[in-house]
Design a protein around this nucleic acid. Structure first.
Lengths: 238, 238
DNA sequence: ACCGTACATCTTGTTCAACAATCCTTCAAT
DNA sequence: ATTGAAGGATTGTTGAACAAGATGTACGGT
């Protein structure tokens, strides 16, 4: 008879682990605030009062402060000593910096298309499919989500969990900027077709071409973003 | 007579601002624990008891927990629900992943050597100088520090604050692995000369050559590290 | 010996209340 | 208009308290 739990059985169980890991209150609060900030519920510059939010969510100030710390650490909030937590107001320099990071990471990942896992490449194409479907139906906020997912998938070609997480954070920051813009159609519509081209290069394993097209994409997107993005408030008030 | 504070005067003062910004207790505790973990004071797998550390540092549990959260977020500690905070035991997969990230980021940054700021390039060379001086004197731990600083400087060629921070975190994690190794001389000695070669390519603005040499460097270092690095404790069980 | 249970114990997760330090607002005075 | 001083509000930090989960140990059954 079988001796015991095999390596295979154990790893099958390990995949379920994330489903039953009960997160702490602080983690759940962090997750909740993270999505709310990313979705644009709180406009940039808003102060996140400990008392108000703590009372609204029914958690203590201490627990809330743990959540705030984490959000600050991933730049989805900024901490001013003795003044509180604020939704960040990203500067034009931040836009430039985020795109520099994206060029480095996404460009480098795209270049590895030839040696990337097939599942990773298929994920890239799947993201483009979703974007096209949403665009055809005129659901432009969905197009935005699919677009971000596309770039996440491109970064995932590197096959590195740390790169994935890095990219997730960078794109979350980028969402803050997108919310300060007009309508998503004007900005995202032209890029769906370009994503398709990039995806096909990746599917073919032509990393050089994919990187080249991607870098051009990012350069154009950055330019377009900077053209319309004006920082809401300078820095120090009136 | 002069009308008032000019733009220039104000920016001069703004540079001093960082000198008088008083960090919170939680921030100071974080910084302290961060360096201690990086320096290897707590061996991997150590549990960081809230009570013991809180009492030792003279801070309350709540404040300490804020610090722990931050450390977990930058992977210098791991949190197990209802069990506490532990110094991470990095796996061989972690080593591979960190080097994948380094290849992507440092390689991409090195490729930009031609268009990087001159001060950034000089910083690269300065780090190599420091490493050579320390190596000649036989101060191998100083060589290690200089080596890490060298790679930090290479990443800084990208001219992106976010890339700088990303690299700082990755190299901090790497320090955890280095501490599990034998003596630093054997590992770091051969790389000082290679750093010099890379630095000279960067000074000349030859990004292609710098990237190529750097990638070879990183591949060798990863291989050498994996050859001797055995995970201290499997994962579960005595 | 092996397994499961029950219990005692320890540590963490979370809340609450309190106080000091700091910032913001208001208002008066020059 | 600028400065100074009081007052209120918010954050920074602490200490104590309790619930919930994890660990360790002893006991009984097989």
């Amino acid at each position: 008879m079988p001796a015991g739990i095999t390596e295979q059985m154990a790893s099958a169980l390990a995949r379920d682990r994330s489903g039953l890991v009960h997160a702490s209150t602080a983690d759940r609060v962090t997750e909740l605030l993270r999505t709310h900030i990313m979705e644009g519920l709180f406009p940039p510059g808003t102060r996140l009062s400990e008392e108000v939010i703590g009372q609204a969510l029914g958690v203590s100030r201490n627990t809330l402060r743990e959540a705030f710390r984490l959000l600050c650490h991933e730049r989805l909030a900024v901490h001013q000593m003795n003044r509180g937590i604020f939704v960040p107001v990203l500067s034009r320099a931040d836009v430039t910096d985020i795109y520099a990071l994206r060029r480095l990471v996404e460009g480098g990942a795209a270049r590895m298309a030839g040696s990337a896992a097939m599942t990773a490449r298929l994920a890239v194409r799947a993201a483009v499919d979703a974007a096209e479907t949403a665009a055809a139906a005129g659901r432009w906020f969905e197009v935005r989500t699919a677009d971000l997912l596309f770039h996440q998938a491109v970064a995932a070609l590197a096959g590195s969990p740390r790169v994935d997480e890095l990219m997730r954070r960078a794109l979350a920051e980028l969402r803050l900027i997108f919310h300060a813009m007009a309508d998503p159609e004007q900005f995202h519509a032209p890029y769906v077709a370009r994503n398709r081209v990039i995806a096909e290069s990746i599917m073919l394993g032509d990393g050089e071409a994919a990187e080249k097209e991607l870098l051009a994409y990012l350069a154009d997107a950055e330019r377009q973003l900077l053209a319309v993005y004006q920082v809401p408030a300078p820095d120090s008030g009136p």
